[in-house]
């Protein structure tokens, strides 16, 4: 059996209004990889993530997740996702950090099951991984952008996923915290969590990832930063 956790073959995608967003994409990722996706606005980076997450359906081609065709892939606990909109939540929402991280257990527990003592321990462990245990009882809206992003990472980690997917996780985070944030991601990668990250900041991710791909309707591996001047890159 292949150790590829994502295999995409000849996938194309277009929305109903006939605009081709992705064309003939071939891409794969192995367990333990830390992969970065960069590219211009509207280039299809987030759409590619949504295809991998099963939120969009490809028009043609095949996608396999953990050696299973995406249509049959049910083990949602293996993948955790931190959305671009994660920190665009309502700041006044009355939820503590602990409660937000507990949300990450919803899929693994299943409907009708309640949070128990062992789950509280898992929440504590996840917060420990992102150095946020001392904020467990704080309301999430009272934290800084960087701290909130760490909480969302903890929410993603609490179900012990094998693959962590992040879409523009550093938007709204100051420069000092961006650097700390990528150090945290590298640490998680060393703990055998595979990472797939979309970022507009090629320079920031280049020092941490194992592979970088440039997505702009098509996809290609970046071997050298000089081939991709920064003005062609941007967030989506």
């Amino acid at each position: 059996m292949s150790d590829k956790i994502i295999e995409i073959e000849d996938v194309s995608f277009q929305y109903d209004y006939d605009k081709t967003v992705l064309s003939h994409i071939n891409f794969s990722m192995r367990a333990g990889d830390f992969v970065g996706l960069v590219g211009p606005n509207g280039g299809g980076k987030t759409t590619l993530l949504k295809l991998i997450l099963g939120l969009n359906k490809a028009n043609n081609g095949t996608i396999r997740i953990f050696n299973t065709p995406i249509q049959e892939f049910k083990d949602k606990n293996k993948i955790a996702y931190v959305s671009q909109k994660a920190n665009a939540f309502n700041r006044g929402f009355p939820a503590t950090v602990e409660e937000v991280v507990e949300m990450g257990l919803t899929a693994s527990l299943g409907i009708f099951k309640r949070i128990k003592k062992q789950h509280k321990l898992a929440v504590y462990e996840a917060l420990k991984k992102v150095d946020m245990t001392s904020y467990a009882k704080e309301n999430i809206g009272n934290l800084s952008g960087g701290q909130q992003q760490r909480v969302f990472i903890a929410r993603a980690l609490v179900s012990e996923p094998e693959l962590l997917i992040l879409d523009e996780p550093t938007v709204g985070v100051d420069q000092q915290n961006v650097s700390n944030f990528f150090d945290l991601l590298s640490k998680l990668n060393q703990q055998h969590i595979s990472l797939l990250i979309v970022s507009h900041d090629l320079q920031a991710i280049a020092n941490h990832v194992t592979n970088v791909f440039f997505v702009n309707k098509t996809i290609q591996a970046i071997d050298s930063l000089e081939d991709y001047p920064l003005f062609t890159l941007g967030g989506e």
């Binding site: 949602k76 909109k85 994660a86 939540f89 929402f93 949300m103 919803t106 899929a107 409907i111 949070i115």
Partner: peptide, 22 residues
């Protein structure tokens, strides 16, 4: 009480809830 955690996640982050299969 049966769907508390699903309803809570749905209220906080609808996109994440959908990804979780809720």
């Amino acid at each position: 009480f049966s769907i508390y955690k699903e309803l809570f996640l749905l209220s906080f982050d609808e996109e994440q809830a959908t990804i979780n299969g809720i």
